[in-house]
Simulated assay, not measured.
Amino acid sequence: MPPVAAESAAPAESAADAVFEAILAGIVRGDYPPRSRLPAERDLARQLGASRPTLREALGRLAEWNLVEARRGSGVVVRDRSDWSIEVLPAFLRYGGGSVPPRELVQMIDDLLALRRALVVEVVALVAPRVDAARLAAARDAAERAWRARDDAAAFARDDFALIRAIVDAAGFLPGVWLINRLAGVYLDLARTITGAAPPPDDYLDTATSLIDALARGDATGAVAIERAYLERHDARLLARIRGDSR
């Protein structure tokens, strides 16, 4: 199967985080199937060793991901998988892999990367004509941080996304910043989940510098071409490694 970290929870920062992760794992594994009802609040809190306010906080976060919903007379019900939010994908790989064929898991990763490519390239195309060259210093800093962190997949992914966010911010395109923030959370969680991720291409820093330089001189067409080519190359290398490990 794909090189997914052993069934280990994402780092928990609070009691609510731990409860959230425990219920999330149960839903994704199928312990709580779609359209089933979760145990009553008092019983579930006792099972998880949590207070009821902590449990409610965790359930609220699960509802934000469209995993559960409160129904009058039925308690809290697990929603169908087709209703789930994209944020669930890394957890699905962590906890649900045992019930899904490896080829299907690889396809999910491929689909997420394709979605990222499409969104990031389109965002670059939108903001390129508006970028203020004087505000690109943060993008250059992010590219250098990403390159220094290239041996740490999660740290590299974080700073690589910071590069794109800085470019979008340099254009004053706030909706684009919000979109990048939302996608970054999923992608960074995925980077923590997948082990053995392919390192960035050797020309990463040169490519990032070329992208920023193209934006600084107002070359929108060149900037889009550079970003598209980089993402296609990086994602192809990552998928090749994952597919090799899944055979």
Rank of each mutant, 00 (worst) to 15 (best):
D202M: 05
A10R: 14
L238A: 12
S210E: 15
R29M: 04
E144S: 13
D235W: 08
G218P: 07
A16Y: 02
A70R: 14
R103Q: 14
E69W: 03
R117G: 02
A143G: 04
Y230F: 10
A15V: 15
A225D: 14
D17A: 11
F20W: 11
L67E: 04
E7Q: 14
A138M: 04
R148K: 08
A220E: 14
R241S: 09
D169N: 11
D132C: 08
L179W: 02
I86E: 13
T193W: 00
F92S: 13
R140L: 02
A50M: 08
F156Y: 11
T54I: 09
A142E: 10
L89I: 08
V186Y: 02
G244E: 12
P34R: 07
Y32P: 06
E227K: 14
A128C: 15
S36M: 05
D202A: 13
E57K: 12
S74E: 14
L44T: 04
R130H: 14
A184P: 00
G176F: 00
R29Q: 13
R94K: 09
L231N: 09
E7R: 10
L67M: 09
A143L: 06
T221E: 15
A18N: 01
R158G: 04
A125L: 05
A214I: 05
A191H: 06
S36T: 08
L38C: 13
V120G: 06
A125K: 05
V124T: 11
P90K: 09
R241F: 05
R42Y: 01
A15D: 13
E21G: 08
A170W: 06
E232I: 02
V123M: 12
L119M: 15
L231Y: 03
L238Y: 12
G172Y: 11
I27E: 03
G244N: 08
D213S: 10
L59K: 01
D169M: 09
I164H: 12
V177H: 01
I242D: 01
N181V: 08
R29S: 09
R233I: 01
R217W: 07
W147N: 09
V19A: 09
D235Y: 12
E144V: 13
V123I: 11
V131A: 05
R247G: 15
R117V: 02
P2C: 06
R61Q: 02
A128E: 06
L174I: 15
A240R: 10
A133F: 08
G244M: 12
V177M: 14
G26S: 11
I226K: 05
G30A: 06
P34L: 07
R56F: 00
D31H: 10
A236H: 11
V224I: 14
S51F: 00
E57Y: 00
V77M: 04
A16P: 03
S99L: 02
I194W: 04
G75N: 09
P2D: 06
A70H: 12
N66P: 00
D245K: 15
L231V: 10
N66G: 03
L231R: 11
T221S: 15
V77Y: 07
